[in-house]
Simulated scan of single mutants.
Amino acid sequence: MTILLKSVSVRHDGAASSAFALRELTLAIAQGEQVALIGPSGAGKTSLLHTMACALKPAQSQAEAQFLLYGLDPWQLSSTERHALRAKLFLAPQTPPLPPRQRVVNAVLAGALPQWSLWQAMRSLIKPIDPARAYAALSRFNLQDKLYARVDRLSGGERQRCGMARALISSAEMFLVDEPLSALDPTLAVQTLEVLQAEARTRHATLICSLHQVELARAHFPRVIGLRDGRIVFDAASDQISDADIAALYRNRRDDAPVQETSAQAVVTLVPRC
């Protein structure tokens, strides 16, 4: 398995000891899979992506807890080894970290930084090393005319697509993408999703994408994971998920009955997973 989590809990630094963002998650994802994460705000989608990207360290509260990435426990590696492992990943946050005064061409080519030496990185800041490559990536999102625009002149949706173009420049074997469609209209949302999925298929990369657009998740992803309150509610093939499952996932908290603590084994799995 590319990713294996077993009874993994995570809390953010500075949070109260009982405030877990993820609670005893057990999950396995194979190389090349395309998975959508859905759930209400605060469900733990971003925390799960950051855990997979080795940006959040699992809590040590469970002796049986295990997190493996490409067969390795990243938190048992040296910082140098963990950095090399992270080079296989591309984490795309909802708001791309693009320097506002930077030109789009430089922002996109930054996706290649893990492949470059320090000298190449510094040289590209002065004169972009491969603008044609950035142009090709931007053109897949209909942004090629923004190649030399400043990042702070882009709209929110253009910034998001610029961040996705940066992902195409990378050599990542796994894309961890957080809400890439939040600032896009319906047509651009579908186009952007299709480009990401096509790129993942071409390089046999794993794609894990959190979405608030439930119908896009069900229509475009073969596997959908529903999260709520830091727990997996369902993990299923998209055609096995009913409207009732979605309604229960997003039910208003005021309508919730008192919830008893459940173990990781109590997670509803609608389709058996390896």
Rank of each mutant, 00 (worst) to 15 (best):
L109C: 07
V267Q: 13
L4A: 09
E158P: 00
H12Y: 15
A198C: 08
E24I: 00
V177Y: 08
G44T: 04
S18Y: 10
W75F: 15
A198F: 03
S78M: 06
Q34W: 10
V259A: 05
L89N: 06
Q94S: 15
L184C: 09
Q66V: 08
E261R: 12
T192V: 09
S79W: 03
S210K: 09
L193I: 12
S41Y: 11
R123N: 04
L118W: 10
R86W: 02
S263L: 10
Q197T: 06
A112G: 02
T202G: 02
N142E: 12
S210N: 05
I129V: 12
R153Y: 01
L249H: 09
I29T: 13
T80Y: 03
T26Y: 06
R86T: 09
W116A: 02
R150E: 12
A198W: 05
A55D: 14
D178N: 06
R123E: 09
A266L: 08
P96N: 02
R86P: 05
A219N: 15
A21L: 06
S155W: 07
S171W: 01
D239N: 14
D255A: 15
S78R: 14
V268W: 11
A189I: 05
A217M: 08
L270P: 01
D130S: 13
A59S: 15
P100C: 02
S17L: 15
P272A: 15
K88E: 08
T46Y: 05
M122T: 02
V105R: 05
L56E: 03
A63Q: 14
T269E: 08
E261L: 11
R201Y: 05
A205H: 01
I38P: 12
T46L: 03
R101L: 12
A248N: 12
L25F: 08
L77P: 07
T192W: 06
A28K: 13
G44E: 08
T192I: 04
S9A: 07
R103L: 11
E64D: 15
R253Y: 06
T80L: 11
H204R: 15
T202D: 10
C274N: 15
G111L: 00
Y250N: 04
S18K: 11
R123C: 10
G230A: 02
E261F: 05
T206I: 11
L216K: 11
G42Y: 01
A134E: 07
A244N: 11
S242W: 13
P258H: 00
L176S: 04
S170K: 05
D245C: 10
V10D: 02
C274E: 15
M164D: 00
E215K: 14
S238R: 02
E24C: 07
P100T: 01
R203L: 07
S182Q: 13
R223S: 05
S210H: 05
I241T: 07
A107H: 07
R140C: 01
A172M: 06
I29G: 14
V271Y: 11
L37W: 02
H83D: 14
S263V: 02
F221M: 04
Q115G: 01
L37Y: 04
G71E: 12
T192Q: 10
S263H: 13
R228S: 01
L207N: 13
W119L: 09
G157Y: 03
V104K: 07
L211R: 05
D239Q: 14
S41P: 07
Q197H: 03
R254E: 11
M52A: 03
S124M: 02
S182W: 09
Q94D: 14
E64Y: 00
H50S: 12
G226T: 12
A87H: 11
R218W: 08
S9V: 05
S170M: 02
H220W: 08
N142M: 06
